[in-house]
Simulated assay, not measured.
Amino acid sequence: MSESVSVRCPACRREHLYAAPVYPCACGAPVAPTLDAQGTATVITHRSWDEEWVGVRCGACGREDEWPRPELGCPCGTVLRVPVVETGTGEDADADADAGGEADTDAAQQKTPVPRRTFQPITIRTARDAVTAAAVYLRWLGYRDIRRADQRPPTGIGIAAHGLLAQVDPTVAPASLRDVECLWLTAMTESAACVYFSLAGYAPEARARADSLGVPLFVLDLTGTPQPVNSLADELDATGAR
């Protein structure tokens, strides 16, 4: 369990005791951002991908991944960004490795395949949670360097990993034929595979088109567990990243 710190809301001056959420590393060990007890919480007035994610290194296996930056909702209606002690990013580690030194060993350790453990889902309450759940699942499958996709999809949120483009649709409408085709076309231009995650399922024609294009389809239930919708998704779930 992560350590708790006192967080003061700058709007209403309330004090809150806050503990960062714990996420499952691919090795199975729990990881959580290190909270900065000396830092000051800031009010979130707008959102951007870079500000919402923070690099966290697993103390068990040394692997570093990006996880949602801790947030706290105050009863006064203010949403606060809780300060953390950042560990850097995977890109920084790679740059250090190119320069030589101890980072060579760290990079080699990070690239060592880790056997998949039992999947530990992230409960979905918000659209942000849906993206986190999909990212956790992709890491569990073995995909690395998960980040925001370069191109924004017409619906939902695009995330990418090495050799993979994923679309997460947190809306209440089933994904359409056009949604699936747009994802597939974008992945083709990037010479990447693709996968679709939806909260509300898929229109019948979207499922049929996904089968013909080779797009795995998953439905995210509210527990955060991706449920395969077609045989391509069943295969991906069984074999993981290749």
Rank of each mutant, 00 (worst) to 15 (best):
H162T: 14
K111Y: 08
A93F: 07
V79A: 12
P115K: 08
L165D: 05
A95E: 11
G158Y: 10
A135P: 01
H162F: 06
P170G: 02
I159E: 07
H162P: 00
T112R: 12
A175Q: 00
A130T: 11
P154G: 12
D94Q: 10
A130P: 07
Q167I: 13
T89Y: 03
A108V: 13
A95L: 13
P153V: 02
Q120M: 08
T126Y: 00
A160P: 08
A175Y: 00
R128F: 12
L164A: 03
I122H: 15
G156F: 06
V114D: 00
G163F: 10
G88Q: 01
A175P: 00
D104I: 14
L164K: 05
V79K: 13
T78L: 07
A127C: 04
A134H: 01
V82E: 07
L165H: 05
D145R: 13
P154K: 09
I157C: 09
L141H: 02
T171Y: 04
V85K: 14
K111D: 14
D92H: 12
G101T: 07
G77F: 03
T118G: 04
T112G: 00
T78N: 04
A127W: 06
D106A: 13
A99G: 11
A173Y: 10
G156R: 06
P113Y: 03
L138Q: 10
I159Q: 09
E102Y: 05
A133V: 07
R81E: 11
Q120L: 09
W140F: 13
H162Y: 03
K111E: 14
T155K: 09
D92P: 05
D94R: 12
F119N: 06
G88S: 01
Q120D: 08
I157P: 01
G88H: 02
F119L: 04
H162N: 12
I122L: 12
T87E: 15
D94K: 11
Y137R: 10
T112L: 10
L165Y: 04
P121D: 06
A160G: 14
T89M: 08
